[in-house]
């Protein structure tokens, strides 16, 4: 656990999270949410929670992004906010 690396990754996580909720395109938001999940997985791997990081890498960055893209494909991509 090196706190400098961990802090940098936390800042990237925060930027990805804010970008995912502010971008005005739902497909872009889904992809940014995938990036957020992957950075979160990296953070947990740094903290030594390898099982949780593995789960997040497969679930958060893999399947949830696919589910988001599928839902956006079946609804609309535009958003007002």
């Amino acid at each position: 656990m090196i706190w400098q690396i961990e802090f940098v990754v936390l800042v990237i996580v925060l930027i990805c999270g804010v970008a995912a909720v502010t971008v005005r395109d739902l497909l872009g938001a889904a992809v940014l949410f995938g990036a957020y999940s992957f950075m979160m997985c990296l953070l947990w791997a740094i903290m030594g929670a390898v099982d949780v990081a593995f789960t997040e890498a497969s679930v958060g960055a893999g399947v949830s992004t696919v589910l988001f893209v599928a839902a956006v494909f079946r609804t609309s991509r535009r958003t007002k906010d």
Partner: peptide, 24 residues
């Protein structure tokens, strides 16, 4: 960030993204 997105965003998919950010 997650809670604010859940309260103020009017798009339902954005609300769900906010919910997930709060969960993580």
């Amino acid at each position: 960030v997650g809670l604010y997105a859940m309260i103020t965003k009017r798009n339902l998919v954005k609300k769900i993204i906010g919910m997930n950010i709060l969960q993580t």
